[in-house]
Design a protein around this nucleic acid. Structure first.
Lengths: 229, 229, 229, 229
DNA sequence: AATGAATGAGACTTCATTCAT
DNA sequence: TATGAATGAAGTCTCATTCAT
């Protein structure tokens, strides 16, 4: 985010008073708070996070947080909404630019999901929303609409494309979308849930295998004859 | 409630008096409270759940909860530990009794996971533990050891069995275990996170597709030649 | 107290149903509760004592206590009032029967105080009232009037008697009363405050020395000439 | 409060705003709270004191107390420990500087006890510890060791000194220490137990008489021949 | 603009008291 | 008559939020 603020006195933290950076503080500070809030919310959940945890993590005191955010809930909203901004913005490009193999496109899309959700600073949002969906239903719906649905739409197009081209079996698209989405989201959750299994999962290797297995699994003519409905 | 009692005084009875004598209720109270706590914890998370939410959901007042459980944390522990008891107890049988096709065994094991985690009254535990793993690290570790690790061990044996028989590719077992586990756990999470996408996911259909795709995807002779490690 | 109840089945405690003792229960039970309440109140103080502590100490359940005492405060009142009944009833006799030496009478009265307050089952009452005097002012006043004042009156008469006979110095009677009373009450308090100094005070020896020193100290012709007012 | 401010708005100030800036009050708050807690604990006892009583007495709200003290028990501990600091620090000096008469030294020491325990702001501690000795055994032991034992050691040396010089009878020192200590502590207890007798005890007069009587009572050659064991 | 002391509503927990059995 | 499960008022403690500095 705040790439511009690289002035020297910034280093000493709370006690800076550099003339150059001073004017930018107003813009800059909220980001630090937002970052801190994000980290705490994702780690502990909304209710278990104290405003002072956030303040301390941001290097300010609790009063300062209220200069930028009306209240705790607003902060949560800001944290979640921030993740909507650019997410999957590269997805459309990907689809439009690509021509040819659906198998390769699937791989590209899986990795794009991971880049968009798993490797950004928003990777904790899915965990956060799973947890808080009951406590903040409207927020969860917005998240679902603004983030998940957009990502799923891209996957859906890939599947439809593959089916059209005869590369993929005639699967139910909605189901297949979930099938592809599931391992990616789990990878994200594992990343944020230390001692919940998969502590030391090698994500790259995992995604490679996900792509390979799904590609094979969805392929149209598999050597094994299907008998299930 | 019972047949005859339709008289006026029934009206005042927000506090229903069940037919069982209250002296006998001591036996069932702990379970009723545990159920209520489980439901609330899974829905809202530990911290966002008020003891009175639990009490009301159990049909008692908050003081009563403390007759059976020392405090809120103890209640969480009890809720989680309860799920350990019988989970995956049928897994070993499954493996021992089965002979023949690894593909079929894989299907059986996926469905067993769903039966053990997704369809029991403990299906919310994974969501709960993902959320609270940072707040209750030891509990999360126990959960991981007593529940997840046991389930994963069973999957691992299936995969190894399939590889030995030449049915499955020579995948990395740890990675493959996660690959199989992921969609099942996601199905469970979706089940408990109303507005987080997949509100109306048809789980049976989803699992069918999971099984079919994984089976094909892991199969040894796929039409597409592998080149990755 | 309840000397009569010695019937056999009494031994087995809660489960007795002896015909002989049964009819006396109603009279007997309150005493057991009173004893228990007294012990707990003196040890922990009124507020820190739980009704269930009392019930358990009396070998009943908490509900039973309410069959005999309206509430906790009533129980305190009963405990304290019980101590008024016979206290210092032998004091008047002592004074009336005695003739002669005031020094000897003083010794008798000091020992009578100890017998009346220190050795009865009421020895904890002074501690209790010191503690609770602010929380139960009227009770404290009654205690002061019904117990302390009566005991002090006896001491006062001894001192006046000694002064009249020329055995004692012309001390201020009120002050001298306190002077004599103080070591006795302290002995009682020490008895009930385990680790507050004087854990292993030999009370008999202490009282001997109290008597000897006070007797000498109050004596009319002391070797050291007085000059203070 | 201050000169000019007699305007109407003064009326609404149940919450007086002292002249000291609130930023500076952080320094004094702990002491104000400690004072308030001390007063309430001594008056009502630990359990019967509500945190809000303390807060109100300190002129703050209950939440503020927790900014300075972890919990109620910690507050009790702080209150009691505060009294240990300087108590009897002048005792050693007294003994070392004094030469000559043991009788006079005894008088000095009795008055020193009163100054140290009875006239300081800690005069309620003995009452408090007598009451709470069973509820806080370790605290009572520390009190006994840090306060009482130190004071008793000084008395003991006076008695031994008097015996060596032939001024005092050969009394058992431990017993004699208690004998001297008893009336002083009782005076302190009376001071803090309004309606428990001795409401209007003139302490100075009482201590004068204590000193005179003990001095005479312990003197070596008394005109009255001892006959008690 | 930042601080952090103070507030007070609200959560957790205890326990005197009730009451069906 | 005794029990002890259940209640709910009250106390302890936490923490989001305010506001004087």
């Amino acid at each position: 985010m705040s790439e511009a603020v690289v002035s020297g006195s910034e280093i000493e933290g709370a006690k800076r008073r550099s003339l150059t950076s001073w004017r930018r503080r107003k813009d800059v500070r909220p980001d630090e708070i937002l970052d801190a809030a994000y980290g705490q919310f994702v780690m502990r959940g909304f209710t278990a996070t104290k405003m002072e945890d956030i303040a301390r993590a941001a290097g300010v005191t609790s009063g300062t947080v209220y200069r930028y955010f009306t209240n705790k809930e607003e902060l949560l909203r800001a944290v979640v909404h921030e993740s909507f901004a650019r997410a999957f913005s590269d997805g459309e490009d990907l689809l439009n630019r690509h021509s040819g193999n659906a198998h390769e496109l699937l791989a590209l899309v899986v990795r794009m999901w991971w880049r968009n959700l798993g490797e950004t600073r928003f990777s904790g949002i899915p965990k956060l929303m799973i947890v808080e969906s009951a406590n903040f239903p409207e927020l969860a719906q917005t998240y679902e609409r603004e983030l998940i649905a957009r990502g799923e739409a891209i996957i859906a197009r890939v599947i439809e494309y593959g089916i059209e081209r005869g590369e993929f079996r005639r699967v139910n698209v909605n189901v297949a979308v979930k099938l592809i989405e599931a391992p990616i989201i789990m990878a994200i959750l594992w990343k944020h849930s230390d001692s919940c299994g998969a502590a030391a999962l090698d994500v790259d290797r995992f995604l490679d295998e996900v792509i390979r297995t799904l590609t094979h699994g969805l392929a149209n003519k598999s050597p094994i004859t299907e008998q299930a409905s």
